[in-house]
Structure formats: C-alpha cells, structure tokens
Write a protein that binds this DNA or RNA. Structure first.
Lengths: 329, 329
DNA sequence: TTGAAAGCGCTACCAA
DNA sequence: TTGGTAGCGCTTTCAA
C-alpha cells in the first residue's frame, strides 16, 4: 500500500498529529521538527490521501464537470479553461460526458455530487425544475444557460448577433436568413432573439430556416432552403452548421461571399482554417471555463453572496473571408 | 450534511452494519429487513459516500485519465470511449489535460494516483524512465504509445501506412512525400517506419519533409516543400497537418487530386467535411478508449495476468476525394 | 510545541 | 440473520 502519515511520523520520530501540522500549518510547529517531517515525507514520497482528508474536513477538493458531448468543438476550450483554473486552485476535476442524454445527465449529477464540492454543468440538457432541485442540494454553476437566478456564466449572444447584423447591413445586405439550432437550446433561443431584434432595428428582413441539428449535416441540409429564400446573407446558429452550409454551397457552385455571405457563431478552430475562412462571432471559451470555476469557488466560500451571481462574457465578431458585399451592390 | 448510513439505520430500526449488508450483499439479510432498509434509504435519498468506502475497501471506483490536449480532435473520441466503458463498469473518471507539458503530466499522475484505482495515459509525453517508475507504483495503461512491455493499447500504424501506400501505388504513384510529425512522438516514429517499409517494398521513392508541428499551420508550412520535392502524392503524419496542406495547396491553385494526392491519418471528423474530402487512415478511437478501460480493469483484478498485455487495434484506409491517379498517368 | 484520542462514513470481522 | 467493534488515513480538539 501507499505511504501514510504514520510512516512519515515513524521515520521523523514524531506523532502523526505533528506530521499533519507540519504539513498543513507549519507555523504551529518548531522549525526543526518541521524540517525533519518534511524531509521524511519527501524521502518516502508521501502525499496525503485526499479522500481521507475530505472525510473529515467535509471538503473533497474535487469539482465535477458535466458536458453533453466532448466531440462538439465548442467544449474542449471550455473544459481546458476549467481544468486550468481548477488546477491553479488545487482542485481535481471529475469529467462526465452525457452523450446529449438528459437522463444520463441526471444520474451523473447524482453520482458525482457525493464526491465533489460542487458541479459545473456545461450547457445542461435537463429541465429547469430538475436543475433547481439539484441547485438546492449541491453548489452548482451553469455554463451557457440561464435558469432563473441560478449561478451561471453565459455569453453575450444577443450582442453577438447585433454585431453580426451590423456588419452585414454595413456591407449592404437587406435580406438575411437564420439557420436555427434546436428549439430546446437556450443559446439558440437567445441568438434567435438577438438576431430578430437586431434585424428589426436595422430594417433588414429576416427569414428563419430550420431548426436543424447543430451539426455539419444540419448545415448541409439547410443550404438549399437558404438559397431558395432569396437572401444575400445567412447567419447560422453555430459554426458547425455554417461549415455544412459552406460545403453544400461549394458543391452547388455558389461562390462565397460573391453570391452569398455566411456567418457562424462560436469561432471554433476550424472556422479559421476553411476556404473561404468563416466570419463568426467569437466566444471566449477558456475564459468561460475559468469564470465558471471562479464562481463555483466563490459559491463554496460564501453561498449567500454568490448564490445568484450571473456573469455574461462579451463576444466579438471575427470578420473573415466568408462575408462581403451583396451581389448587386 | 448529507444523509449517512447511520440515519438510514435509525429510520429502519437496525444497525449500520445491517444497512451496509442490505445494500451490498442482500442475500445475507432477511428479505423483510432488507426491504425495510431499502425503503428507508430511498426515503432519505441516501447514497453511499464512495470516498469513505474506498478508504476501507482500498478501491475508489475511480479511474484517472490524462490527456495532452483536449483541443486536439484526436482525443475526444478516445475520451468518449473511456467515459462510456467506465460508466458501464460503475467507475467515475478524473480527467486532466496537461497542455502538452510533460512536467504537468508527472505532477498530475502523482496527484491523481492517490484517488484512483488506476490510470489511463493518453499518448503520454513523459520519459520512458518516469513511465516505468509510475507503472511500478500504480496500475496504468498507455494509449497510443508503447514502452517496453508495459500495458498499452495502440493502433496498427505500420499496417495503416501499408494500406495508404498500396492505395497510392495502385493508382500509379511512384514518388511520395511524407510530412513528419514531432520526432519525439512514438506514433510518428511508427508511422514513418511503416511508411518507409511499405514504400521500399512497393518500389516507390519516399521524400521526407519536416518535422512540423502536428497542427494546421504545420501542414500549411509543409505544402511548399512538398511541391518542390516533385512528388505526385503526399502522406501526412496526421489529418490536422493534411488539412493544412490542403488549404495551402488550394491557396496556391494546385488541384487535389488532379495535380497531387493527399492522405492523412486518424480520420478526425473534419476529414470527411472538407472539399475535397480527405482520404485517411481511420483509427477506431472509441474502441481504443474502451479497450484501455477494459485492460485497466483486468489489470486491477489480475495484475500478474495483464501486467504486460499490449493490444494493437486495426486501422482502415478511408478512400475519399483527395486521392486519385497521378497527373501524367 | 507536541501527543493522545476521538471521529469523519463506511466495511469487515467476530460473536451472538 | 444480526449487532458490536475495530479500523481505513486523516484532521482536530484537548491536555500536557
């Protein structure tokens, strides 16, 4: 078995209590003793058993992270941000991928809740009611979704859409399509809302296509209806859909942006790598992860203060090759 | 605080020991008692504290997973496979992303080792020596790398390259470039070795370009040297590099596959989504994750038997649009 | 400044 | 078939 605090105590010639103190509150221990203990610990390669510690302190130093689909290029950035911030704060991360299944999500929350101090839920699929229930039991922060006053980090979807529309109308576009993501998705609703508002105030016509699955094939499928709608520009719910659009437009011999402009949302890595490169609304994904952990840590320290904190992170339009002036401008 | 086994015992009117048995070995408990306990547990919403259990059983029911970079599209598939298999076996997964930093990897292994029953290391960056050291202390399986006889799941890199070369020579190619990945990468060495052997036995000339970073920009940078080498086909260390190649070739107005054929390795999702779609050697990533967990579970049960088990998973060439006959065939 | 002892939640053993 | 007891590794009183 692994080396325990007793082994260190024996080698250092002190009691286990002293070892514990030497390692956690050195100022309560005579310097010389402290040194001896530290040396023994180092020699033996001791590192404390966090589970045992958690049992008594009631603090596991673990956080749980639940994501719907790691394969979705939106998530790795967020997860990396969470990892990085958690590591800085000396927390370990339990990760679970639910495969977009709300039932699995619920079960996973139950299982994880016991072994972590708090949970970060990425774009949770579960119902508002369930979410509220869990939030009452376990410190929890949501990413990319808001439910009531529950702690959450979100992106400025509405403002992102405003930026996209401003860009398009400045170029001269007057008729724009929106390829909608899933009706049940919080961010789709936000983006659609922002887009409608921006189009209305800019005096541009808006045609909604879909909803489609937020995947490459969804975009492929949406391209023909978009073309049929007689628009000069299209904004997709997200980049993956936009990439599908681009692919199908290319296959049909439609030039982008000469004949139609395309805008995505998220700024996933591939967006900058395709031809033409994709104009898109960029989300600070790593910051989102970090902010999520920060909020969770705050929540653990001072639930009253952070219990209803919601932060919205700014978004920024990345203008690239897929947008230009409309055909007959 | 959470509800403990004592609470359940009190409500059910039995001793904690009985609660424990009723829940874990019901056949040692009278049916009626068992029912009473279960009901009490359900009423109170009891679920056992796995950390406390682990303390005594010496089994945490957690596995640790360390990956170098979740942003690399190679990993999500593997991680999903691991998650899925772990969940089936009722294990939870600690995930750590090391950001390609070997030092972080070492530290993370140390930290995680205490709270898990075993570790899965994805394409580990650390030295052979360190790896051997850790393997002596903690059950551990490597994915995508072999070191001596340590337990590992790998892909048939050599055979994949044979398939790629066979495909190209069948089309008539006689002069092929290889864009190498990092010298330090185990899979790059394997792939290069397989490629050299296959080219030699097929009588094709091989030109090596690079090494380049295994990223899109690496591929972009490699395109010009490849063109200068006067080859009719190029095989990249991985898909991400191949995508960069494709992009730069497009920018220079070189038609693929009319003027040059391109093959990648991995079959990441984007490979099928670009124009022309990328011919590539497909790796069963989810299977790799599942196999890794299976091997780890075997290792935990019977270290002697599985201590040196290494499995190689088959690879399959996915022929797509980026390969064709050479220009003057 | 240090050590002894109690106990976190749980399981395993021995008696009954 | 059940309960009591000990103890996993650690931290935290309370005394000394």
């Amino acid at each position: 078995m692994a080396v325990t605090i007793k082994d260190v105590a024996r080698v250092a010639g002190v009691s286990p209590s002293t070892v514990c103190r030497a390692l956690s509150t050195p100022n309560l221990v005579r310097d010389e003793t402290c040194d001896r203990v530290r040396r023994a610990a180092a020699d033996l390669g001791y590192s404390p058993n966090r589970a045992a510690r958690g049992l008594i302190t009631g603090r596991t130093a673990n956080i749980g992270l639940i994501v719907p689909d790691l394969g979705n290029p939106f998530f790795p950035g967020v997860v990396k941000g969470i990892q990085a911030r958690a590591r800085e704060a000396d927390y370990a991360v339990f990760l679970a991928d639910t495969d977009e299944d709300p039932a699995a999500e619920t079960q996973l929350v139950r299982t994880l809740a016991k072994q972590v101090d708090g949970l970060v839920l990425c774009s949770p699929r579960m119902s508002e009611q369930e979410l509220r229930g869990f939030a009452a039991e376990t410190p929890l922060v949501m990413l990319n979704r808001r439910v009531g006053r529950l702690p959450a980090i979100t992106f400025a979807n509405v403002d992102g859409m405003r930026q996209a529309v401003t860009h398009l109308t400045a170029l001269g576009h007057r008729r724009i399509a929106y390829v909608a993501g899933p009706r049940t998705s919080w961010s789709n609703r936000e983006r659609a809302r922002g887009l409608r508002a921006a189009a209305a105030s800019a005096g541009a016509a808006l045609v909604e296509v879909g909803p489609v699955l937020p995947q490459f094939d969804g975009g492929v499928a949406a391209a023909d209806p978009v073309l049929a709608a007689g628009v000069t520009a299209v904004i997709a719910y997200n980049d993956v859909i936009a990439l599908g659009l681009l692919s199908r437009l290319h296959a049909r011999g439609i030039a982008v942006p000469a004949e139609i402009s395309v805008i995505g949302f998220d700024d996933i890595p591939m967006a900058a790598m395709v031809h033409p490169s994709l104009t898109t609304v960029g989300l600070p994904m790593e910051s989102c992860g970090r902010a999520g952990v920060d909020l969770l840590l705050g929540l653990l320290q001072d639930p009253a203060r952070y219990g209803t904190t919601r932060r919205e992170l700014g978004t920024h339009l990345m203008v690239r090759g897929s947008t230009g002036a409309p055909p007959n401008a």
